[in-house]
Design a protein around this nucleic acid. Sequence first.
DNA 1: CGTAAAATTGAGCTGTCTCAATCAATGTGG
DNA 2: CCACATTGATTGAGACAGCTCAATTTTACG
Lengths: 233, 233
Amino acid sequence: MGCTGCVVRGLGFCRAWLDQGQDVSVPGLPVIAQIEKAMPARRLVFRASDRLDNVPVICAGWGAVTSYLPSGRRQILSFPLPGEFVSPSLIFVDGPARDVEAVTQIRYRVFDRMAMREQITARPKLLERLFRDCFEEKERLAELVIDLGRRRAEERVARLILDLMTRLGRHDLLRGKTIDFPLRQTHVADALGLTSVYINQVLQNFRDNGIFEITDRSLTVLDPFKLNLVANR
Amino acid sequence: MGCTGCVVRGLGFCRAWLDQGQDVSVPGLPVIAQIEKAMPARRLVFRASDRLDNVPVICAGWGAVTSYLPSGRRQILSFPLPGEFVSPSLIFVDGPARDVEAVTQIRYRVFDRMAMREQITARPKLLERLFRDCFEEKERLAELVIDLGRRRAEERVARLILDLMTRLGRHDLLRGKTIDFPLRQTHVADALGLTSVYINQVLQNFRDNGIFEITDRSLTVLDPFKLNLVANR
DNA sequence: CGTAAAATTGAGCTGTCTCAATCAATGTGG
DNA sequence: CCACATTGATTGAGACAGCTCAATTTTACG
């Protein structure tokens, strides 16, 4: 079924492109849209050390942008979802990259940065949209700082769930009140600055309180109201 | 003495501008560089709620970009230093702003966003530079996430000091191994997701171990090697 | 000079961690 | 299709980094 559906359904850039009657996976833009690649779950997709001249987009599956400390501790900075750039700001700057891991099996596609920039700067609306995507990427990090700095474990978890749901919603990946949830407890822990042992306990509390539960790699929200309450405590 | 010296000495945008023989505070750009304003220490400079159509630059003094939770907890996201934008990405997007507080007495200047964008997009080098500033802003937040998520109090403090020193260094605000250090212990605490009581203890440890000490609103590094060691533990 | 803000100290407390063991699930090769 | 190997989830007990509360002293400022 290829990547088309996903990318076209995607947010920001991809959607804006579509708005203009363009389709990234359509002939006419062969220069910038390269062949779809795949990567099995749990593998490293990009290494922070290799400098990329291209901009990766996730077609299917979940990724994780990570950073490892010398001591082995891991911090996850973001989860790129299907239809999203791994990092929109890579379009404008070839800054120091980060490790990107595949949470699930992944299909992705890379765009040549320079070609992309040319095409984009010619279209003010697209450019504007990309700026906003970059801004949003930054804002998401700022919110994460606030979470890690000043919120307790329950709040962090609740907010992560809500964030994932709104992003999946944009891409039409909500199934009522449930979503695919491929994250392992260690992913949640490393994203929220906690340990998986503790996350386990927190998740059980959520289940016991009838707020949400995770079964069979998918998450369903049982009480959206309570969930919001916890998230904004 | 006005703002000129500071802004012109500034990083990124300001410096790039200077490279092209321009000076923001010089006649010829009266359109975009507005009058210098001042604000006493500890006051709120901008409120997150007021939507700005302009881009503020700090001329003198230290600021703090903050976020308050309903419960009153505060998280500091960054300390804009003299010569820096409060947030470079405000040039491109008028996103949701944040509270900005004055750590010390502050002098600042605001630029009309649209006028600025016009002038900038006409100069590819400047534009490139600004992209890099935005990227750096984002990277700094990412590093802060890693700090708060996966590093202990001592490491966080050491890294904050080093970050401030390199940034002040760019603007020629180092006096050998000492810098002005107007931050209160509560600022450090709220920037690093800790409490001031605990920060107090950590700072004493640093002093007792001859790594650095803070006296009289200025900080001097006694043992740069050890400081680096702690920062990269 | 008086008042408000900041630093310091101490004692006790708790959210979260570490270590370690067990159990369940998932994947793999033969 | 089974047996083993790997990865992930769960549980328990003890430990500690960092917190809260509260009082006291020092510093800054109008």
